[in-house]
């Protein structure tokens, strides 16, 4: 180790790999419905796209997890995003193509993508 910058570089590279274990550091939770209905409708590629997009942008403090059947199977794949201290937003009929926009507008800039939400389409 020749410099502090080198240490910092390792830390930065590793931090998003371990941030999910720091309970209080999580600001945003992305929860993908992954019951049979969700998986059948293509939830897995959606979830993987979220993971990849978050990684690509180097976002810290965001976790992606999965849940069971949210209850409206016809609207799957469904994704719920909870930003700390804000109301949960539910997206429906998600596809991998829509993920980048949701990450950019909702998670990064704090403006939910209205037209993908359950309130707009449902």
């Amino acid at each position: 180790m020749k410099s502090l910058a080198e240490l910092q570089a390792i830390r930065n590279r590793m931090i998003d790999q371990v941030s999910m274990r720091k309970d209080d550091s999580i600001d945003t939770r992305v929860v993908v419905g992954m019951a049979t209905c969700g998986i059948a409708a293509g939830a897995r590629p959606v979830m993987l796209e979220f993971v990849e997009e978050i990684k690509r942008r180097g976002l810290e403090n965001v976790t992606v997890s999965q849940t069971g059947c949210i209850g409206m199977c016809r609207l799957e794949p469904m994704v719920e995003i909870t930003v700390k201290d804000q109301e949960k937003v539910t997206y429906i009929h998600m596809s991998p193509e829509k993920v980048a926009r949701v990450v950019a507008e909702h998670i990064v800039n704090g403006r939910p993508v209205e037209e993908y939400t359950i309130g707009y389409q449902g």
């Binding site: 180790m1 931090i15 790999q17 274990r21």
Partner: peptide, 18 residues
């Protein structure tokens, strides 16, 4: 219980060696 003790990079990620 939080890090992999056999991986120095995980320790560094939790502010190790800072």
């Amino acid at each position: 219980g939080v890090i992999d003790p056999e991986n120095i990079e995980e320790y560094i990620a939790f502010d190790g060696y800072a």
